[in-house]
Deep mutational scan, measured.
Amino acid sequence: LKLEELTVSELRQQLRLRGLPVSGTKSMLLERMRG
């Protein structure tokens, strides 16, 4: 599964599971997911 294919709400869910901030735009969330 490519990160880009996730919805913003799915990205936020994944970030929350990792204890990361869930604020910002989709591109910011993607950068955060990539670490």
Rank of each mutant, 00 (worst) to 15 (best):
R16L: 13
L3M: 12
L6H: 05
S27C: 05
M33F: 04
V22Q: 12
R32W: 03
K2G: 08
T25V: 05
Q14M: 14
S23A: 12
R12Y: 04
R18Q: 14
E10F: 00
M28L: 12
Q14S: 09
R34T: 13
E31Q: 10
R32N: 13
L3V: 08
P21D: 12
M28P: 00
E5A: 10
R18M: 15
Q14C: 07
L1R: 09
R12K: 13
R32V: 06
G19L: 03
L15Y: 02
S27R: 11
E5M: 04
Q13L: 11
T25N: 13
E31M: 07
T25A: 08
E10L: 00
L29D: 04
E5L: 03
E4L: 00
T7L: 01
K26S: 01
S9T: 15
T25E: 13
S27P: 10
M28Q: 15
G24P: 01
S23W: 00
E31Y: 12
L15D: 02
L17F: 08
L20V: 03
T25W: 02
M33T: 03
L6R: 04
T7F: 01
K26P: 01
L6E: 06
T7S: 13
P21Q: 07
L17R: 11
G19D: 05
R18N: 08
L11S: 03
T7D: 12
T7M: 02
L3D: 12
L3F: 15
P21M: 02
M28F: 02
R18W: 11
T25D: 15
G19Q: 05
L1W: 13
S27G: 12
E5T: 08
L20S: 01
G24W: 05
V22W: 03
L20K: 03
E31C: 01
L6A: 07
L6Y: 06
G24Q: 00
L20M: 14
V8P: 06
K2E: 14
T7H: 04
L1V: 11
R34M: 05
E31L: 04
Q14P: 00
L15K: 06
K26M: 01
V8Y: 03
Q14N: 05
E4H: 13
L3C: 00
E5H: 09
E31R: 05
S23P: 01
M33G: 07
T25H: 08
K2H: 14
L15W: 00
R32S: 04
R18K: 12
R34L: 13
T7N: 09
E10C: 02
T25F: 02
S9W: 11
R12D: 04
